Amino acid sequence: MKVFQEGGVPLLDWRENLEFDGRGTLWVAHLTKNRVEGYAPDGTLRTSFPVPGPGGIRRGADGMMYVDFGVNPLARDGGIMRFDPAAARPRAERFVNGISGVNGLAVDADGNFYLSRELATGIVKIRPDGTKDEEWTRKADVFGTNGLEVVGDQLYASVITSTASPVVRIPLKDPAHHTTVTELSPNPLKIKLLDDLTSFDGDLVVASFRDGELIRVDPATGRSCVLANGLRMPSSVRVARAFGDHDPRRDLFVVEASGRIVKVTVG
């Protein structure tokens, strides 16, 4: 484990989410400073710009970057903003608003967006044109989702509010038939507070905010193991993608509520 970017005061310097744009920049949602930051492979801060309460951040099917905003229980508005990662001076513009309590974000191959809500039932689906798919959302009636990741025709979600710490599978074409892949906290007193998750080498890697762990889960069997520990309130994990000499087969990047960005090399 190697620190890519140092943090500040824990919880007051909260970096919430991250994503690689495939063009050599790591984009980070800095929650407490209300901004998105762009980093070079050597750790240099290339740019930053304001986004109110940024959360889940993902590369869209169109090459644009999308980021949740209003990730704050007191926020009056929330939704998705977007920006061009290739712009000399990126600037976020509103894409969808009027969705409160949002947190995680995922995008499928057709350009549909999925937003998690920690204190509500139903994963919100937004079509590429920005309209809401209300029927899909009603059928995806999972309460308390946080991290989201699309793998093929399945959407995987971590649930932060359940004492069982489950990971759930939601078929994109049949969301009512969602199933539990695994429960990572058999003891309800040891809830892991699952945060974001990513796909890695055929498995899922989930961040445990409470325990400071990355947990590897086999989506076919539900078997799990601790991939890394000793992190400080990890909130998101992503595989390095077209990011200098960082190896996507081995290198995972993690952001924490401590403010740090950490590189974890597997194997």
Rank of each mutant, 00 (worst) to 15 (best):
G244Q: 09
R216S: 13
L12I: 01
Q5W: 08
V107R: 08
G212E: 03
L119T: 14
I215G: 03
V262R: 13
S224K: 06
K2H: 12
D77A: 13
D13H: 11
G63C: 04
D108E: 07
D211C: 06
R260Y: 00
Y114C: 05
A61L: 13
R249S: 15
P128Q: 13
L115Q: 08
G222V: 14
F253S: 10
G111W: 11
N187T: 12
G212K: 01
L184P: 11
I80G: 11
V181C: 09
R15G: 07
E37C: 08
D77G: 07
T182N: 02
A61Y: 11
V181P: 07
P128C: 14
G259Q: 03
V71S: 01
I191N: 15
E213N: 01
C225D: 13
I261T: 13
R82H: 13
K125D: 02
M81P: 03
M65C: 00
A228I: 04
Y66C: 07
I126P: 04
F49H: 11
I123M: 06
S116W: 10
H246A: 15
V3Q: 03
K2D: 12
R89Y: 01
I99F: 11
G70N: 08
L252F: 07
G101H: 06
R127H: 12
V226I: 14
G7S: 09
G56W: 10
V262H: 03
M64I: 01
E37L: 10
Y39V: 05
A40D: 11
I191Y: 02
L12Q: 12
R169G: 05
V168D: 02
I160Q: 12
S116G: 15
E6F: 05
V107W: 11
R89T: 13
T221R: 02
P171L: 11
I215M: 04
R138V: 09
M233K: 09
L172S: 04
K173D: 15
G79Q: 03
F20D: 07
R35W: 00
R127W: 05
